[in-house]
Each structure stands twice: as C-alpha cells, then as structure tokens.
Amino acid sequence: MDRKVVFKQRLLPYLLLAPQLLITIVFFFWPAGQAVWFAFLRQDAFGIRTTFVGFENFAELLADPLYLETIRNTAVFCIGVTAIALSVALLLAVLADRQIRGAGGYRILLIWPYAIAPAVAAVLWIFLFHPQIGLIGRALNGAGIAWDYKLNGDQAMLMVILASAWKQVSYNFIFFLAGLQSIPKSVLEAAAIDGARSVRRFWTITFPLLSPTTFFLLVVNLVYAFFDTFGVIDALTKGGPAKATETLIYRAYVDGRVNLDLGMSSAQSVVLMLVVILLTAIQFRFIERRVHY
C-alpha cells in the first residue's frame, strides 16, 4: 500500500528535507570526503609538508603483517559477538515468548543493557572479571584457573566479546520477541497436531519463519561489532594486551589520534567505509528479495 502525499508547491518538500540534508552533508559527507582525500596523502613527521602518494598508503597497509593480524582479530571478534548476541537473545526470546505471550513489563528490564553507555558497561564487566577485585575473576583464580585478561590475549578477547555481545543482546531480544509473536499461534498448533514436538517445531517452523528477522539482526550485529564497540574495547583493554583485542576500528583510531599518522588512518577508514557499503548493499539486496511471510 503506497500512500503518496502530493505537495502543491515544488519548493516545500525540499525545504522540509533541507535540515536533514544539511546535517548529513556537514557531519557525514564532508568528513567522509576528507578521509578519502587524506588516504591518498602523506604528511611528514612534523605535519608541515603534505604530499600526494596515490595508493601507497593502501599498499603499505595491506603489506603490514600487523594489519592482517588486526583483520583476523576483527573477524574473530565480530563473529564471536554476533553469534553470542544472536543466540543468547534468541534463547531468551523463546523462553519469554513461551511464558508471557502478550505481557510487556519485563521488556524494560531486558532493554537496560542496551541503554547503558559503553564505559559504564565496561566498568560493570571490570567489577565482574578483574583478576583481583572482580567477583568472577577472583573466583576463577581461586578455582585454580589463571585468569588475567590484562596479560592473556585470548582471555582479553573473550572478555571484550562477552561485554560487547551482552550490550547487544537486549536489542536482538526485542526484535526476536516481536518476530516470535508475529508467528500465528495456529501454525505452531498445526505442527503440534502434525506430530512435531517442541524442539522440532522450533527448527522446522519457528526458525524458518523468523529468518527475515534473523537476517536483519545478523547485519545489524555485524555492523555493531565492527563499528560500535570502540567504547567497550577502549574502556576494557585499550586493544591490548599486545594488540590482541585491536580491531580495525580501534587501530584506525590509534593510528590517527595516537600515532598521528593521518594518511594511514584515513586509508583504514576508507577500508572500513567499503565494508559498511558492502554490508548495507547485502542487506538491501536481501531484504528486497527476502519473502516476508
């Protein structure tokens, strides 16, 4: 159902759009354009002379073994965060859907983590997992497991994955729950009568019918893990120990703001931009093609 509004004056729609366009241009297209431009420049150590170097920054970037290591970290991190955030949220949504079809008050509780600032979330996780002062950290060490995410790279990665996933679970939960509740009850009942027990019903009916939601969340979570987890990583590990938790976005920040290598940082930003464009393209393509039951 298309509902079209027809404006009498030609100018009005553009005037209405202008503020939004202006904000987008000033705060997005302009800096993005700058980043692309910087990616082809190189500054000397004192920031006095700037030369155009073509694709040299990119070539250097891709030849850097540390950058390839960062890509690997990012892949582990993104897959970890997305897998955990999606599966935990789905599990919770299924349990909630079963118990409280229709009721709504509990949702507030579950949406909380989403509303918490990354730094606050990180502090919370430090309180839990700090080897000396954290509840769980101390318990782990007490149980004979050498737990110190500030020394052990794998443990640090686990920790940032968990903390980042935790923040995203509530968002996913809301969507999964809405998706579950939009599946007609009678379809599940028909499956029950056809002889399917609950686990089978879930995998042959519920899960396939949920797939548009799952796919949407998959892309959203990947984007989140890629770009929105900077705060959590910065507050928890600062990319360490020994760059074990440095993701692409974190490294772009470190190179640009800490090492002041604007050219390299911009080249990395351009790579990231390409990733966003790719993810968005995939999403649009599939969402258009995808059947909505």
């Binding site: 007609p184 009678s186 379809v187 009942e189 028909a190 499956a191 009916i205 019918l209 059947v291 039951y293």
Partner: peptide
C-alpha cells in the same frame, strides 16, 4: 479456521 498452512 485460518487454515494455518506453513507459509514457508
């Protein structure tokens, strides 16, 4: 009443 066919 609403047939409850499996849409997928």
């Amino acid at each position: 009443q609403n047939y409850a066919l499996y849409p997928h």
